[in-house]
Design a protein around this nucleic acid. Structure first.
Length: 322
DNA sequence: AATGGAAGCAACCGCTCGATA
DNA sequence: GTATCGAGCGGTTGCTTCCAT
């Protein structure tokens, strides 16, 4: 059976999103919450494919996304997880709640892969985790097993390292249910990322607020930010939460303040429509970018709540060439 | 200062899965 | 039990920007 295209190819705009489109999308999602993507283009008037809208939201506009340079810890974690899970970016992304699978994938393809290759021996080559003979469906069913394995491996590796007090992570386990339709997404990132909120390193806890004023400021920011250099900052076009913008020390850091569960309350009529991740309490990512991971990692084993976060990834289970 | 190649990132495409009628 | 729809995932492409010459 041949599936019809997800959207009419005629009249569908492609290419980079404009700030205005972002704004429309964000406003719509703020009001209705993410999900029902099929309806988004028609209801917003966006000349975009529903998939495109979803991608734009999940990879870019979604609150809690951290952009910019990957830390050493993140890098090691990605390498580790890639070795364990293969190219299952969504699963890997679930360990890095602030990063999108697309981001991780790009980072892998542009940095880590090359690093590993230049490392030479290929000893750290990830296993062919997905045998050609097994269907994706079968493989997917093993994902949870994979994750459990990874979890265990990480935990075992980390356990002797110290004594970390894990954070509350109300949001993490609620994963998946957040998008109201995300049939079986195995990516807790969707929700937990929200937990980490917009630009966690800066975001003052606050409601997900998009007032007209904020929107216009947002557009200003976009307009300015769009031309930023791609290296180093990578604020990218339109980062409503722009982690980088915070680095300016501007008091506007939380202008467009997503998340902030504590307050996302009735302040705005739309707050109720927001999905879980706008309402989840923030993982105190400010302190430690991987706190959500830690929380998750030790989620089901409270007695493991004793790992030094600083040492989290000083795990040498594999021989990485770097 | 101009140009070509390389690098990085955003977005698209096709496939698959789960839910539902 | 089957067909269809909506959504997610991974691979790939194309554009933009940077850097070296």
């Amino acid at each position: 059976m041949v599936r019809p295209p997800c959207c009419d190819k005629e009249g569908v705009k492609k290419g980079p999103w404009t700030p205005e489109e972002d704004l429309v999308l964000v406003s719509y999602i703020q009001e209705h919450g993410p999900g029902n993507w099929r309806a988004v283009p028609t209801r917003t008037g966006l000349m975009r494919c529903s998939k495109s809208c979803r991608l734009r939201w999940t990879n870019y506009l979604r609150p809690g996304i951290k952009r910019g340079n990957f830390t050493d810890q993140e890098e090691k974690l990605i390498v580790h997880l890639q070795a364990l899970l293969g190219n299952r970016w969504a699963a890997i992304a679930s360990y890095l709640p602030e990063r999108t699978d697309n981001d991780i994938k790009n980072y892998w393809n542009t940095h880590l892969k090359r690093k590993l290759q230049s490392g030479g021996d290929g000893a750290a080559k990830p296993p062919a985790h997905r045998p050609a003979s097994s269907s994706k469906g079968q493989w997917e069913r093993r994902l949870q097993t994979d994750i459990d394995m990874a979890r265990r491996a990480l935990r075992e590796a980390l356990t002797p390292l110290g004594d970390l007090k894990p954070q509350q992570h109300d949001g993490v386990d609620a994963a998946g249910a957040s998008t109201g339709g995300g049939g079986g997404s195995d990516s807790p990132a969707s929700s937990s990322s929200g937990a980490s909120l917009c630009s966690p390193s800066v975001a003052a806890p606050g409601p997900y607020v998009l007032t007209t004023e904020n929107i216009s400021r947002m557009l200003d920011g976009w307009a300015g930010g769009r031309k930023q250099g791609r290296r180093g900052g990578s604020a990218g076009p339109g980062t409503p939460c722009g982690a980088e913008s915070a680095s300016t020390g501007s008091s506007d850091a939380s202008e467009v303040s997503y998340g902030g569960a504590a307050v996302a309350s009735a302040a705005t009529p739309t707050a109720g429509a927001l999905s879980e991740y706008e309402r989840k309490p923030a993982v105190a990512a400010q302190q430690m970018p991987l706190s959500a991971l830690e929380s998750w990692l030790f989620d089901d084993d409270s007695h493991f709540h004793q790992v030094q976060s600083a040492s989290l990834l000083d795990v040498p289970p594999m021989d990485y060439p770097f």
